[in-house]
Amino acid sequence: MGIEGINIRHYRASGILIEFGFGHRVVNNRINNMLEHGVEVVSSRGNLIWKNEISYCYDGVLLISGSTNNWVIENVASRCYGDGFESFLAPDSNNAFISNKSIRNRNNGLEMYGSNNLAFNNLILDNGIGVIISQERDSVFIGNKVKGTILGTHVIFEEYTNYFAGGNKIVCNREEGIENNNGQFGIFIDNEISYNGDSGILFGEESSENLVMNNKLVCNVPDNISNRGTNNSIINNTDKPCDPCESPSDVCDAFSDEEGNIIDESKVGVN
């Protein structure tokens, strides 16, 4: 079944709900001011959520209760009261979040629980927390941009195993660029992590056996890399401190106009 080109607003439930469904297409809808979520996918698999504009909902797109193999592509979730995009718990696995924009949501830009989920080429801008990775193993985070988060940027916890983050740009966030509390066997490669208000990469005491290689780390305060874990390998990274009299906030203020148009675009769906 396809749901395409509908304006949905001011409902007391979710805008679009797929329950025990398979292979449905939710394309190019505008959803705003829901009491619940923009698009909610419950115990469903293989659905396409594409080019929807969602604002002022609880979560933008929520995958829950064992939703797997879903494609969430080129959506905009902005100004939601919960998260922009979320896979809720460990059974919500094998999903793809590609080229979405998650802008100014109150909680998390992208909350990815479960195994083998993919986040590729997403823009995660000005959210409470940028990205949460938790429960199980093997998820991948490639080519995303995370900027302007307030309470945390990219947080990995619950002993997440075999996580891969590569080619991401993580700049101008208020706290650590990547915070790996107790993850194991993660790979962090070719990321640009700059001008964050706390360490660029922080490995907690219980983290172990992670690889950090070929990343560019510039002017993260106090340290570009803070390693409190065991057997983490840190190889061949560009580790550049701030220039004299330079601080992340000075540099980021200059960057902030660059994103102004994107934020204005995110208002398009609001009626």
């Binding site: 007391r12 619940e36 609880y58 718990l89 629980y113 938790s134």
Partner: peptide, 22 residues
Amino acid sequence: MDVRMKIEQEIERKKKIIEDCK
């Protein structure tokens, strides 16, 4: 967030919505 806390918060939120809906 701890998984237990996450589920509890969601339950709390859902209960409130159900109450409001009724």
